[in-house]
């Protein structure tokens, strides 16, 4: 397979995944804030700031009044904002276009529809009353795309590359969301006697990652900081957990790397090493210093991505 096309497939996976997480974050935060138990979590400014924080565009000066429609437009449909959902969709399709001869007609058609859905979505109604409809559609279309990727592609290198992109991106986004909600939980603590560990924000976090129901089934208790982080980071059976993503990345790099020899400079080696590290971590280690954990995991993911670039995309 061409190195350039491999790179495009990898990034197609990443952009599809990324658009989904941003969309769900907007949706869940916005709508759960409407009847949140405390005043700060209900505050519109608090929610808008959290949204910008998640996409990495946090405002330095928190006293500046944010305009809801502006923020929603910026993150949702503004083609001049690099991180907007619409740009992620565009990039996903561009990457699919250049790998069009390698992916199935069915997958391409779905990506193409995804693109036209985003492109034709009326801006006016999106910022006024379309947030729910738009974001739900995005998350549903991405679920369809995932199905098409799994169901209409040979499970070979093409598939492995897309899956690597998706899982690296998912781990990255989950970590970013944890970071954003952790930050919100810190800010929201204390008001009305909420404790950090029992913050309402943990429920929101689980919903943002579509893991609330799974978590409730497993723990049968109201989520706390520890149980939530344990579930989202370390539980290999939660399909959204960082651990699960690393397992997936490892499984797929083995499709690409067929060498039987031990090579400490390979991507496969690095993925395996990172995976083992998290496999034998326990939550108390992480809870002590969440901030540095987040930095570390983002670093590790970045390194894997760079390694892949060196080994496979850069010939």
């Amino acid at each position: 397979m061409l190195a350039r096309v491999a790179n495009n497939l990898f990034w197609m996976g990443r952009y599809i995944e990324r658009s989904e997480h941003i969309a769900r974050y907007l949706n869940v935060n916005y709508f759960s804030s409407l009847d949140a138990p405390n005043k700060l979590s209900q505050s519109r400014q608090f929610v808008l700031q959290s949204m910008l924080y998640m996409v990495g565009d946090q405002t330095e000066d928190l006293s500046v009044e944010l305009n809801e429609e502006d923020v929603l437009y910026k993150i949702g449909l503004d083609i001049d904002t690099s991180y907007s959902i619409i740009n992620n969709i565009k990039h996903a399709r561009e990457n699919a276009n250049s790998a069009r001869d390698l992916i199935s007609t069915e997958l391409y058609e779905s990506i193409n529809k995804f693109y036209h859905f985003g492109l034709n979505y009326p801006v006016g109604s999106f910022v006024k009353n379309g947030l729910y409809d738009f974001t739900v559609n995005i998350t549903e279309i991405t679920a369809v795309l995932r199905g098409k990727i799994r169901g209409t592609l040979l499970h070979n290198e093409v598939y492995a590359l897309i899956m690597m992109g998706m899982n690296i991106e998912r781990a990255t986004q989950i970590t970013r969301i944890i970071n954003a909600k952790y930050n919100d939980a810190l800010k929201a603590q204390g008001s009305y006697g909420d404790k950090f560990s029992k913050s309402f924000e943990w429920t929101t976090l689980l919903k943002c990652t579509e893991s609330y129901d799974m978590m409730r089934r497993l723990y049968k208790k109201t989520p706390t900081s520890i149980s939530t982080l344990e579930f989202l980071i370390l539980n290999p059976n939660c399909p959204r957990s960082v651990m699960n993503c690393l397992n997936q990345v490892y499984a797929h790099i083995l499709i690409l790397d067929t060498s039987k020899h031990y090579n400490k400079n390979s991507t496969a080696f690095l993925v395996g090493k990172t995976r083992s590290e998290y496999r034998y971590k326990h939550i108390e280690e992480i809870e002590d210093n969440i901030q540095s954990f987040i930095e570390n995991i983002l670093n590790s993911l970045g390194q894997i991505s760079q390694k892949m670039e060196m080994e496979y995309f850069n010939h």
Partner: peptide, 25 residues
């Protein structure tokens, strides 16, 4: 796609010793 061959752009190919190669993974 239907021929089952790679679709390349100029930058995917290079020439060395007067032979043409494509850059694959």
């Amino acid at each position: 796609k239907t021929m089952g061959v790679e679709l390349v752009e100029g930058k995917d190919l290079f020439v060395e010793n007067d032979f043409v190669y494509m850059k694959t993974i």
